[in-house]
Amino acid sequence: MNNITRFAFVLFLVNLIAASVLTGVYYLTRPRIEAQQKLIKEEALRQVMPGSVGNRLEPFKENGEVRYWKVFKGSDPIPRGYVFIAKKYGYSSIIESMVGMKKDGTITGVRVLSQNETPGLGARVVEVLSNKTLITALKDIFLRKKPAEKRLSPYFTGQFKGMKIQRMDISNIDAITGATISSKAVVDSIKSRGLEILGK
C-alpha cells in the first residue's frame, strides 16, 4: 500500500513537472504559431485571389453550410468575385481544389488542396517545375547574384489563370501526359461548380 502511494506520488511529480514545462513552452510559442498559421491561410488565399480583385471574404451559407465565399473589395457592398471548392473523382481519388473567380467568370487562380492520384501520372497536377540547377545555383552564389524568383504555383493549374470559365475545356488546356482522366477531372469540376455559382 505504502509502495503504491509512493509510485503514484512519483508519477504525479514527473507529470507535474512535464506539464508545467510544456505550459511554458506553449505560451512562449503560441503567438508565433498563430501568426504562421494565419500567414499560410492568407498565402493560400492570395494564390487563388489576388488582392487587386478583392480582399474581404464572406461565407455564403445555404441550409447552414458554407457553399462558397463571396469576395469584396474594401467596403464596396457588391461582390467582386468568388472563392469556391471544386471536387471530382479523378483516376483513383477525389481531387479537391480551391478556385478563385472574378464576377465575369475569369479564373484568378487554382490550387489543388488534396488528391491521391497515381504517382508520376495524375499526381502531377500539383507538380511544381523548377529551372534552377546545381550549376546555376552555384553560379548565382559565386557571382553574388540574387537568385531568380521561385515559382510557387504548379504549371498545370497555373495555366487556368486568366481563362474564362465558360470557355474552359479539356481541349484547350495542356493535359498532363498520360493522365487525361485526372486533368479532365480538375477542369470539369471547376467548370461545373463555377458555372453553377455564376448562374445563381
Binding site: 506553449y26 510559442t29 504559431i33 504562421q36
Partner: peptide
C-alpha cells in the same frame, strides 16, 4: 512522459519557427 515532453517541445518550436 519525459520523452513525450521533449517531443512536444520540438513540435511546438518547429511549428513556430
Amino acid at each position: 512522459v519525459i520523452i513525450a515532453t521533449f517531443v512536444t517541445i520540438v513540435e511546438l518550436v518547429m511549428k513556430a519557427y
